[in-house]
C-alpha cells in the first residue's frame, strides 16, 4: 500500500493509493459479541460501509491456525481494510474516528483538550468498567452455556466494583451531559456493548437505573440509531 499523508488543520488526512477498487471493510466477529459490536457502532456512526464476517466462537474458530494469522491472541474483532489488517476494538474505533474525522458523527471532539478528556474516559472504561462488567456478564450469560457453574463470588465482587465505578459516573454525569464532555464521543460509545448485556440480558439494569444521571445517559446513548442497527445485525 502506498499511503500519502498530509495534514489539514493539524489533523492527519490519508489518501490511500494502491487500493484501486475500494473494498468494503471486513469486520471479523460475531453479531452478539461485545467487542465486534463496539466496532460496528463506531462504523455506523461514521457511515463506513462494512461486512460482518461471522466467526463461530462457540465452535472455537477464533483459536484455529488460520484465524491466529489474523489475530495472535485468537480473539475478535479483526478488521481487514484493503491491505491493512488489525485488531483490538478500542484501537479500531480510534482509527476510524480519526481517519473519517470529517464524516458522520464527530467522536473525538474539536480540540486536543477535548480529545484528552475523551481519552481519559476511554481509559476509565477500559481499566475500571470493562473488567467487572465483562466478568459479571460472562458469569450470568455464558458460564452455563460453556458448561461451567456460575461463580457466585465473582458475581458479587464484580457487582461491588461496578457499583463504585458507576458512583463515579453518576458524579461526572451530574456535571457533564456525556462522559467526555457535552457531546457524544467514543468514551460513551465504548460502554454500549457491556452495559447492554448487563441491562437487557443479565437482569442487572438496576445498577444503571438506580442512578438518575447514569440512567438518563444510558437512555440517551442506547437510543442512538447506530446502536439500534448494531442490535439488528
Amino acid at each position: 500500500m502506498v499511503a500519502l499523508d498530509f495534514r489539514v488543520r493539524g489533523r492527519f488526512v490519508s489518501s490511500v493509493v494502491g487500493c484501486i477498487v475500494r473494498m468494503v471493510v471486513k469486520l471479523h466477529g460475531a453479531a452478539f459479541a461485545a467487542c465486534p459490536r463496539r466496532v460496528a457502532a463506531c462504523l455506523y456512526e461514521k457511515n463506513v460501509e462494512f461486512e460482518l464476517v461471522n466467526v463461530d466462537l462457540f465452535a472455537g474458530d477464533h483459536k484455529k491456525p488460520e484465524f491466529l494469522q489474523l489475530h495472535p491472541f485468537g480473539l475478535v474483532p479483526v478488521i481487514q481494510d484493503c491491505d491493512l489488517t488489525f485488531f483490538e476494538s478500542r484501537a479500531i474505533i480510534r482509527y476510524y474516528a480519526e481517519k473519517y474525522a470529517g464524516q458522520g458523527t464527530d467522536l473525538l471532539g474539536k480540540s486536543l483538550e477535548d480529545r484528552a478528556t475523551i481519552e481519559q474516559w476511554l481509559e476509565v472504561e477500559a481499566h475500571y468498567f470493562n473488567e467487572p462488567a465483562f466478568s459479571l456478564a460472562f458469569q450470568v450469560l455464558y458460564a452455563e452455556k460453556l458448561g461451567q457453574e456460575p461463580d457466585l463470588n465473582v458475581i458479587k465482587s464484580s457487582e461491588e466494583k461496578l457499583t463504585k465505578v458507576l458512583d463515579v459516573y453518576e458524579e461526572r454525569l451530574s456535571k457533564s451531559k456525556y462522559l467526555g464532555g457535552e457531546f457524544f464521543s467514543l468514551a460513551d460509545l465504548s460502554h454500549l456493548p457491556f452495559a447492554h448485556y448487563l441491562i437487557n440480558d443479565s437482569g442487572k439494569g438496576y445498577l444503571f437505573h438506580d442512578r438518575k444521571h447514569v440512567s438518563a445517559w444510558w437512555e440517551d446513548i442506547s437510543s442512538r440509531p447506530s446502536w439500534k442497527k448494531v442490535l439488528e445485525l
Binding site: M1, F87, E88, K99
Partner: peptide, 19 residues
Amino acid sequence: ANFSEMPIIGVWMEVEAHH
C-alpha cells in the same frame, strides 16, 4: 510520523493495556 503507522501503534498500545 505517518497516519498509516497509527493503527498498528494503536493496536500494540491496546495489547499492552489489555493483555
